[in-house]
């Protein structure tokens, strides 16, 4: 096994998927794929809207569940992450009417709300954006998290060029398009937020009238 790892390290030109596989974390005795899948299968049950199907990973989730690949500095890991990013970038749906900004007041409410999609939430209710859980946004809200960077003065420092609009929309829609194993959920891609909600969040960040930019 060790030899294989060494070999791979010597062959940086190999195709990314094969490399990613060989570079995987060795989880140690008793925690191989078969044992781990069996444990997952036997350890959970459906509750409300949170059903067992949620344990099934897509390619991005499977990739990012391996810290060696999610954060490793090897060329193979870097290349594999670029591939994941490209795949996620391709999923982004841009605003259908070409309008980037909605209502920042509605956006603030969405950013404040951490509700949605847990086993104790009901189907069909609007989800929150969970934004303040991890980001500073409006100065007035001091109960903000720090897992993500501060977004205070987001529009003020970046302006509102087409490029900024496009990046910001894309980041909210599918954060993994820009950072393969970002901690940020893929709000549009996973159906957490609607297009209208994303537009309102865009306004919160980019509208010059938004308190974020005061």
């Amino acid at each position: 096994m060790k030899n294989i790892v060494k070999l791979v390290a010597l062959l940086p030109l190999l195709a990314a998927p094969a490399l990613a596989g060989s570079n995987a974390t060795d989880w140690g005795k008793g925690a191989g794929d078969a044992a781990f899948s069996a444990m997952l299968k036997n350890s959970f049950h459906d509750k409300g809207i949170a059903t067992l199907s949620r344990l099934k990973q897509d390619a991005t989730q499977a990739f990012c569940s391996d810290p060696a690949r999610a954060t490793g500095a090897s060329k193979a890991a870097v290349a594999a992450r670029a591939k994941i990013e490209a795949e996620n970038l391709a999923t982004i749906k841009w605003p259908t009417d070409g309008k980037w900004l909605g209502d920042w007041k509605a956006g603030e409410k969405i950013a404040q709300s951490g509700r949605g999609m847990t086993s104790s939430d009901k189907a069909g209710e609007a989800n929150g954006g969970n934004c303040y859980n991890c980001h500073q946004i409006s100065k007035a809200e001091i109960a903000y998290g720090t897992i993500g960077p501060s977004l205070h003065n987001y529009g003020k420092t970046r302006g509102n060029s087409e490029e900024t609009m496009r990046y910001t929309w894309g980041k909210i829609y599918n954060a993994k398009a820009y950072n393969a194993c970002s901690n940020m959920p893929r709000a549009g891609h996973m159906g957490i937020l609607t297009e209208a909600q994303i537009r309102d969040l865009m306004a919160l960040l980019l509208d010059p009238a938004s308190p974020v930019n005061q």
Binding site: G28, F36, Q57, C64, S65, R186, G191
Partner: peptide
């Protein structure tokens, strides 16, 4: 350890 890093669900 493996469970700790296992990512899934609609929020990843």
């Amino acid at each position: 350890k493996r469970m700790f890093y296992y990512e899934g669900g609609p929020y990843d």
